[in-house]
């Protein structure tokens, strides 16, 4: 790793102030599992890391405005055990899939949302778009884990966030603070992620000197949710495809539905047609399968990842069934 300064702010305003020094050539340090790897690989360079763990408000979980406000630094373990979050099944499903106690105790909610893509071209220094002489290395290379949606532009990687599909399905918002010390704005999470057109654009709307301070979720009410991740390994692994479903079912009929896929596109991929179709149906094997067909019908797989379309379809179907309480056996 290259040398850097270490800053330890104690308030939100101080965190923003420290992030804005060095012309914003700074990085937020939370659980460290992603940032340190990026720094070691020299994929990210920084003049200073700002360790935000000593800002009390980033650790809170409190009721707010008909929902719950979760601090950026709340760890997976804390999320899993918090009484205010017990009804957000789609988030708990994700935590159950992170099969390492070390990541559960260090990994943070906002850290997951800001996790850089795991694309091996990106991680090996070819940039987010993995271009060489203007040609995409992904298109002609090993793209087995790359995008099957939203990949017609130069970006072919998949969004790494595991919580984003579930959070977006819930209608979550994120509070973005900075670059001015008192500046704060609530942004719907679905608008937080971007598909970059250049290597410099990044994967989120965050500009230098900005960070996520909190995530807000609406009260669960009668809505039921689930996430289904397709994992290759029994141990610690990233999903090949995932889907989250939020369903409001009354009298056996779906009244409201939100379906979001993960790890299939450069951003979390919202399946609005399928969700709209599901409204008015009763959930069963057949309707879940039809919604899943609809969700993946416009996939554009690359040369080596057509299998991911089927995995995404399965994830959508099982997420719907799971949210409706109909997926009794794991892996059924």
């Amino acid at each position: 790793m290259r040398p850097f300064e270490y800053a330890r702010p104690e308030t939100e305003a101080e965190a923003i102030e420290f992030l804005n020094d060095h012309g914003g050539q700074t990085a937020v340090l939370a659980g460290g599992t992603d940032l340190l790897n990026l720094l070691k690989a020299d994929v990210v360079t920084t003049q200073r890391v700002v360790d935000i763990k000593h800002v009390p408000s980033f650790h809170e979980v409190v009721p707010e405005q008909g929902g719950v406000k979760i601090g950026a630094l709340v760890t997976l373990e804390e999320l899993h055990d918090h009484p205010l979050l017990a009804e957000y099944r789609s988030l708990l499903d994700v935590i159950d899939g992170v099969r390492a106690i070390q990541i559960q105790s260090s990994g943070t909610l906002a850290g997951d949302l800001c996790h850089h893509p795991n694309c091996w071209y990106y991680r090996n220094g070819y940039g987010l778009l993995a271009l060489e002489k203007g040609e995409s290395l992904v298109t002609s290379g090993d793209n087995r884990y790359h995008a099957v949606f939203g990949n017609q532009g130069p970006a072919k990687f998949v969004s790494a966030s595991r919580f984003a599909p579930g959070l977006i399905a819930w209608g979550a918002k994120v509070r973005v603070i900075g670059p001015q010390p008192t500046e704060a704005e609530w942004v719907p999470l679905e608008y937080f992620f971007i598909t970059p057109r250049t290597n410099q654009q990044g994967t989120t709307i965050l500009k230098p000197g900005q960070m996520i301070s909190h995530v807000w979720l609406p009260d669960p009410g009668v809505t039921r949710s689930a996430t289904y991740e397709v994992l290759q390994l029994e141990g610690l692994d990233w999903p090949l495809a995932a889907a989250a479903a939020c369903l409001q079912i009354e009298g056996g009929t779906v009244r409201q539905a939100r379906l979001v896929m993960g790890h299939v596109a450069p951003v979390p991929w919202i399946a609005s047609d399928a969700a709209r179709w599901l409204v008015g149906q009763s959930v069963n094997e057949e309707t879940a399968g039809m919604a899943a067909d609809m969700a993946v019908s416009r996939a554009t797989p690359l040369s080596q990842n057509e299998y991911k379309v089927q995995l995404a379809r399965t994830a959508v179907k099982r997420a719907i069934l799971k949210a409706a309480g109909l997926l009794t056996m794991e892996g059924a």
Partner: peptide
């Protein structure tokens, strides 16, 4: 941060020492 061989406890919780400063 993928193999667990550097696991130590911080305030009683297991963490990966390779990706903490």
């Amino acid at each position: 941060a993928v193999c667990g061989a550097c696991t130590v406890h911080i305030d009683g919780k297991p963490v990966l020492a390779c990706t903490r400063l």
